[in-house]
Nucleic acid binder design. Sequence first.
DNA 1: AATGCCTACAACCGCCTTCCA
DNA 2: ATGGAAGGCGGTTGTAGGCAT
Length: 329
Amino acid sequence: MSSFSGEDKSSDKNNLKKGPWTTAEDDILAAYVRRHGSGNWNVVQKNTGLARCGKSCRLRWTNHLRPDLKTGAFSNEEQRKVIELHALMGNKWAKMAQELPGRTDNEIKNFWNTRLKKRKRNGLGIYPDDIKHVFNAHNSETTLPTYTHYVNDSGVGSSSCVPREVFNNFSTPNQPLLVPPISEVPVDMQLFEVPKEMMQLEVPEEMMQLFHIPKEFLLQEYVEFLEDFMNGGNYECSGGPSSISSKMPPLPSSCDALQFDEPMVVVRQVHEVGTNQHYRPRSPRSNGYLESIFYPPNVSQEPKNYSNMQGDDPIKDTLYSIIHPFFPR
DNA sequence: AATGCCTACAACCGCCTTCCA
DNA sequence: ATGGAAGGCGGTTGTAGGCAT
C-alpha cells in the first residue's frame, strides 16, 4: 500500500534506511563492532556509511549479531523460566533477559505474547497451575490485568513497578504473605512486643535474589516501619511519582489498594540512586525496602500525608480505627 | 492455483533514564 | 543545576512464510 504523500516508507527524512537488514549491512555492522566495540552507535553511520540510525544499529547488534546469542526455539526449561519470571516481575523483558543467557528481551517478549494469545484462544489462564501455586498468584488472571495502574498527577495512567502477583500476596489470607497483614497481630499486643516470629517473611527465594533484598534487613525495616507509623511518623502515603523523585518508579496508589480488604504493606525493589537524585523514602527510617499502603476501603481520595492529619481528620480516624484495635496507642 | 488466515518475529516508535559537558 | 545526546525499554506494527480452504 502506498502512502498518501508518496514518500518512501523504507527511508526517513534523513535518508536513513528502514526495514529489514540485508546481509551486506549486517556484515558492515558486525565488522565495525568487532573493530571498535559496541556503544556510541550514532557514529557507526558516519564511520561506515551505513544508512541506518544509531538506534537501529544497536538493536540489530543486540538482537541478532551479538556472538553470544542462542538460536532456535526456546527449550522447555527456558519456557518455564520465562513463565516463572513473568509471574515474579511482570512485563520486565529486559530484566528477564538477564536471567536467560543468550536470549534477548525482544525474543522473550515475542514468545510471551504469542503464548498469551494461544492460551487466551484456548480459554486458558495466563499461568499454569503449578506456577500459580509457586508464586501465589491465583487472583491475578481471573479478574485483574498483569499490571496495576495508577493515575499520576497529570492524569496519565502508568504501569506500577509492582507486579500484580506481588500485590496479591497481600490479599490472600490463606496463602503465604510477603509480610503479614496487621490484623494478624493479636489484639492486646503492643507493637514493640510483636515477636519477630510473627513476621513470617515467606518471600520466594528467587524474588529475594532478583530484588537483592537482604532478608534480615527487610524484617528489621518492617519492625521499624510499624514503630514509626504508630509513633506518628511523617509518612506520605500517596502513590505516584510526584510524591518522591520523578525518577523513581511509581508506587501503587489507593485505586489499587481499594481492591483489597486488608491494610497492606508493600515491598518493592530497591533502586540505586545517585547523590544528586533526591529519593525521599516514605518512612524517615526506611531505606526503601518497605513502603506503606494503609488505605481503608472507604477512602475515596488519597490522603496526602499522615503528618498533616490531625485528630479530627476523618481519614486519619479511619486509618487508626483499622490499626488501633491491634496497636493501641 | 488462488486466497485468506494465522503465527512468529524483526523492526520501529515513543517515552524514559542516564550520562556528560 | 541544566539541557542535549545517547542508550534502554516496552508496546506496537509490518511482513514473510506456513497452513487450511
